[in-house]
């Protein structure tokens, strides 16, 4: 979604979901190249009728400038994760190997820990979490997915 970069726009959208009983599974929002607009990627769930109604309700909000259902076409989804793991003794080598397999990056190192940065589809992030040996995860920070439609056409004004 492209939304007006105004105070209150986010709460209108979040409020709509809670007021009408829809789910927000994740929500990412940041400024775009156009200063007056923010771009929001929102992941929700529901059958076709519910998703249709969610789209209509969002479009009705004055602050929502443009909306695109990425699930309707070929699209790319990326999520970033920062994960802090306990890395001591033999685990250090194991975690480093895992990082390489997932094409992740170790971005912070102490005697006892790594911070690993990993970007990809949400499933890949889930898989990495699953692959870390039991008990080694200290902290997981995920951005929630952001998405874009494949091809030349863009979500612009």
């Amino acid at each position: 979604m492209l939304v007006e970069n105004e105070a209150g726009a986010l709460s209108r959208i979040a409020g709509l979901f809670s007021a009408r009983g829809y789910n927000i599974e994740s929500l990412t929002v940041a400024a775009t190249d156009e200063a007056s607009l923010s771009r929001m990627t929102l992941v929700t769930s529901g059958n076709d009728d519910i998703v249709e109604q969610i789209k209509k309700q969002l479009n009705k909000l004055i602050d929502v400038v443009k909306l695109q259902d990425l699930a309707e076409g070929e699209h790319i989804e990326r999520e970033m994760m920062l994960i802090k793991v306990k890395a001591a003794g033999p685990d250090r080598e194991e975690l480093k190997r895992l990082t390489e397999i997932f094409r992740a990056k170790i971005i912070d190192v102490t005697d006892a820990s790594y911070i690993v940065e990993l970007t990809g589809a949400s499933r890949k992030l889930d898989a990495f979490i699953g692959a870390v040996p039991e008990g080694l995860i200290t902290e997981v920070v995920r951005s929630g997915p952001t998405g874009i439609l494949r091809g030349a056409k863009g979500l612009t004004l």
Binding site: D49, E52, Q53, K56, Q57, N59, K60
Partner: peptide, 11 residues
Amino acid sequence: VDPSSISKNVK
């Protein structure tokens, strides 16, 4: 006039 009223409760 409001598209969100259409097929909201009844298809």
